[in-house]
């Protein structure tokens, strides 16, 4: 498999490659910090051009989705595992943030509790399943997501049932007030969500270039080889699964606070599919893919009503077509095109 299309004779390739081989550059700014700064600039750029609160609200959604999809990038792009139940973890973060303040627990603690709960659940469920081949995780998470959705819809005394519930508690405006900045609520949440997405992206990029990240990427390409190099494959997969669940839960908690209202559909199957589609469309191998996928699939429905009417067909069609025509997604596809034009 790996040797496909590598017919270049070794004699000529040595010469040809010398030109492309670049020395390992020592960078002053690490790749994580660089990513954070790029994201920060993009967040600021948005704020510069947005004419109304409506735009800020859509922008907030884009960053929250980017954060959640970054978790999918870690799981799908780095390790090569598909989860069809990540909306479940998203919803656990969201509902903990919504429910716990009703019992006297302050919002920040409630968020933390929700994120921790999602992580623990991922750990408990992931470990036995991740010993098996790829299909099993997809199926098990599909079931897990449905179970979480079921609980959220049926336990109305706790969650408000299918109608959803109001989220009371923290407003981001107050955060900015503390440092003397007066912002509208929509603007305040936009900055918070953008900041969270930037941090999340930086962490994911740090991971990719680190010892742990190399082990994950090795599993993606060949778990047999990874194992032969001493990588505990089941443990590494389970770590990635937990990390990606944490991303989803943080994003869910932010959405609950920013929206002030949540419904069980945040934990629904279609939301899980949406997250995977965003990652696949943008390119699951990088955080910029997550951003592009989240941007397109969040902004497009706002512009095109046809999107709302045919949501399922559009999402499904995108998944199939991307996988057939540009398997690595938009961002790597465009980068490849660009490189080819340059050379």
């Amino acid at each position: 498999m790996a040797g496909q299309g590598t017919t270049t004779a070794p004699q000529e390739s040595g010469r040809e490659m010398q030109a492309r081989t670049e020395p390992a550059r020592r960078r002053v700014i690490g790749p994580g910090l660089r990513t954070f700064l790029i994201f920060a600039v993009l967040v600021g750029l948005g704020a510069l051009i947005f004419p109304s609160s409506y735009f800020y609200r859509v922008g907030t959604l884009v960053w929250i989705n980017t954060l959640a999809v970054t978790g999918i990038v870690v799981l799908l792009g780095y390790v090569g595992l598909v989860s069809l139940g990540h909306a479940g973890f998203f919803a656990i973060g969201a509902y903990a943030t919504a429910i716990l303040p009703n019992y006297g627990i302050p919002s920040p603690l409630a968020m933390l509790a929700g994120v921790a709960l999602a992580g623990l659940l991922a750990l408990a469920v992931g470990r036995p399943i991740l010993k098996l081949s790829g299909y099993y995780l997809a199926i098990a998470t599909l079931g897990l997501g449905m179970l979480i959705w079921m609980v959220l819809s049926k336990e109305a005394w706790l969650t408000g049932g299918p109608d959803g519930m109001v989220v009371s508690g923290m407003n981001a405006r107050n955060l900015f007030k503390m440092v003397g900045l007066k912002l509208k609520s929509a603007e305040a949440w936009y900055w918070v969500a953008g900041f969270a997405a930037a941090i999340g992206a930086a962490i994911a990029v740090n991971l990719a270039g680190s010892p742990s990240g190399r082990a994950l990427r090795a599993i993606h390409d060949s778990d047999v080889a990874a194992r032969s190099l001493g990588v505990d494959v089941a443990k590494a997969k389970s770590r990635a699964f937990v990390i990606s669940a944490l991303y989803a839960a943080v994003a869910g908690a932010l959405l609950a606070l920013a929206n002030g209202y949540i419904t069980p559909e945040t934990g629904g199957f279609m939301h899980s599919v949406e997250m995977v589609t965003m990652a696949v469309l943008g390119g699951a191998s990088s955080v910029f893919g997550a951003l592009v996928g989240a941007l397109i699939l969040t902004a497009l429905p706002q512009v095109l009503t046809v999107f709302a009417d045919y949501e399922h067909m559009v999402l499904g069609g995108i998944m199939v077509l991307t996988m057939i025509a540009m398997r690595r997604g938009l961002v790597p596809f465009i980068v490849d095109l660009w490189n080819r034009r340059k050379s």
Binding site: M1, A2, S228
Partner: peptide, 24 residues
Amino acid sequence: ARTFQNLQVFPQMSALDNVMTGCH
């Protein structure tokens, strides 16, 4: 440690990254 008859390299990584993975 071992190598594989039918090759089990990490095709998406550079040669250097492939070998760095061995340092796990």
